[in-house]
Design a protein around this nucleic acid. Structure first.
Lengths: 342, 342
DNA sequence: AAACTGTAGGCGAACGTTCGCGCGAACGTT
DNA sequence: AACGTTCGCGCGAACGTTCGCCTACAGTTT
């Protein structure tokens, strides 16, 4: 392992003081072009790279962004993480920052991990994902006045910069799509109450129904855990109804639940897409290989990652933000589970 | 934002020199128990945390581990990343390290990203994943004699510490499972040549066939790209064969390809699991919700992450390694795509 | 009483930077 | 010729640590 080359080595070679090297390399201060060139050549020749720890110690910053997310349970994929992380790292790198990922297990150590990272000077700011109402991390960081950006929203009265995908709009697209296919009785597989994301998405369903002048029958809204079995059973119950009451379309708040509904329909020998139209949310990569391929709402993941980092960097560096809060529009990917046209 | 509390603040409060505080807190050097207690109390009272940048600058290390992986294409999920990352971060944290993730796009900047991280003192070691033959990253790091651990293997003659999942063993399990279900003509959906992982897995298929005294017909080995369409078409071709030649079981090197095979079978109205048995590899979370649920080989992801970090930390700190190379055994998850018993 | 031993804790230096002050030289102005 | 300005660059200090050496004092031995 070779020895690092420091600013002093460059100085020796260029025959100037090491402080002058610093100035030249950061092009501060007036220096003769000829001296500057000598320094640059020496630096290039020795392959000099500034030592980040030293630079950051001096500058009292870390150029690190803490990224906190809640890991999924083992049998549920987080298919977003790869792309989200990649996108954040790339944008951060371009701005001279690196990412420090740390998983956040609920009830774990609460907020002490954050305090630790702040107090030890590890990070200059945070990006939080997996947000919900009353998020303790957001509360803590607001109180500490420490820079952060959330991917997702929390209580309306908590005012902080965020990036979010408009889930209401996503479910509205999904519902409108079914309506445009001629469906009138549309059910929704929703989440339990007290979920920020769940409420948001559900609201989009209701907006679309209202806009089309369709009644929103409370019996057509099934709230419950976000898993396959629960959704399958709830959908199965709807399908036992008489033909004149039974929903012909189902929108689900997630793909997993949509798949539950597909199974319920197939168990009753319905042809999905014709007898029963189903739309999911998330556009999991495997959704396209299901039978039938699943219509789903896709989030602009790369864009979200980019925006989070851009906002945070601006915040850290005290620049003006064009917008403190960004709402991105999702996209509906139509496949055969909701339409036979294809 | 409150001001950081440094060792000097503690010193002032405990009425000793700041160097003594350092000694007490790292408990080396003889100090009166009474003085030590005074220092500890002051530190606790002020909420002192050592500043990592300063500490690391002094110690000439970063306590950071670079983690490099190749991001998946947009429509292919990396369902492993979440768990793998979480597991690494947690183990690293326990050992006093943090993770620095950086995606590696092939042909991108080649190896300069690594040089950069080394030269700027950002990391003490690397964990590489997405390995293949002739891996340029491994070559470079070996040449630099910089500590690293690979998740996956490369050429046999390149000697470096690695953790890998025994893919051969995985495919052997899969193949043996089909044999035990009474299948005799078993086909395999493999990858193109020159893939370390692909060769490894394929070898397991052959080993199982040989061990059972079954012939390995070259026509039953379809090499090609790892995607749905290619696998579906290849499987479709087998299914046009006469009943006495046609394979009754198919093992695939990945779940995506297994799904392709399922579609091919269903397109010919075969009942998967009875008329045609199919086994995948990876155990993607959605695989269980396919119809029929997919039998697949599951990798011990958490364990792999743990081992990688343990090895690397030992390497960095110059400790003795129990084993420089670790091969973990995968597990076969039997579902209905390969067996009607369930 | 001088010399030795041991202990508590202070002090200076160093890790690799950046930053602002200030000095000397060259040049221009009165 | 004396003075002011500008320019180029060196110098000291600081960021928060750790480390090894040094000192002062007390107790013990000769």
């Amino acid at each position: 392992m070779k020895k690092r080359v420091s600013i002093k080595d460059v100085a020796k070679r260029a025959d100037v003081s090491y402080q002058t090297v610093s100035k030249v390399l950061n092009d501060k201060a007036h220096v003769l072009p000829e001296t500057a060139e000598r320094v640059w050549q020496a630096a290039r020749h020795l392959g000099y790279r500034p030592h980040h720890n030293a630079r950051n110690l001096r500058a009292q910053r870390s150029r690190m962004i803490g990224y906190s997310w809640v890991p999924e349970k083992p049998n549920q994929a987080n298919h977003i993480l790869d792309m989200f992380l990649t996108s954040m790292v790339e944008v951060a790198k371009a701005a001279g920052y690196h990412l420090l990922p740390f998983p956040y297990r609920e009830g774990d150590d609460g907020v002490v991990g954050y305090r630790e990272l702040i107090d030890t000077g590890r990070v200059d700011g945070f990006i939080l994902s997996s947000m919900n109402y009353e998020d303790p991390r957001a509360r803590f960081l607001l109180e500490q006045q420490f820079p952060f950006v959330a991917f997702g929203r929390s209580n309306p009265e908590m005012d902080f910069p965020y990036v979010d995908v408009d889930g209401a709009s996503g479910l509205q697209l999904a519902t409108e799509h079914l309506i445009s296919q001629g469906h009138r009785r549309i059910a929704v597989l929703a989440w339990p109450e007290h979920s920020r994301v769940g409420d948001d998405r559900l609201q989009g369903y209701q907006a679309a129904m209202n806009a089309a002048g369709l009644p929103t029958d409370p019996d057509l809204i099934a709230r419950g855990e976000n898993n396959f079995e629960r959704a399958r059973d709830a959908a199965g119950r709807w399908l036992t109804w008489d033909a004149d009451r039974r929903p012909t379309g189902i929108v689900a708040l997630t793909d997993i639940m949509a798949i539950g509904a597909i199974h319920a329909g197939q168990a009753r020998s319905l042809t999905i897409g014709r007898d029963l139209a189903i739309v999911g949310f998330d556009d999991a990569p495997m959704a396209q290989y299901l039978w039938p391929p699943l219509t789903s709402v896709r989030q602009p993941t790369r864009e979200a990652g980019r925006k989070c980092v851009e906002l945070l960097v601006a915040l850290i560096e005290g620049k003006e933000l064009a917008a403190r809060q960004v709402l991105l529009q999702p996209e509906l990917i139509v496949r055969q589970s909701s339409s036979l046209i294809k």
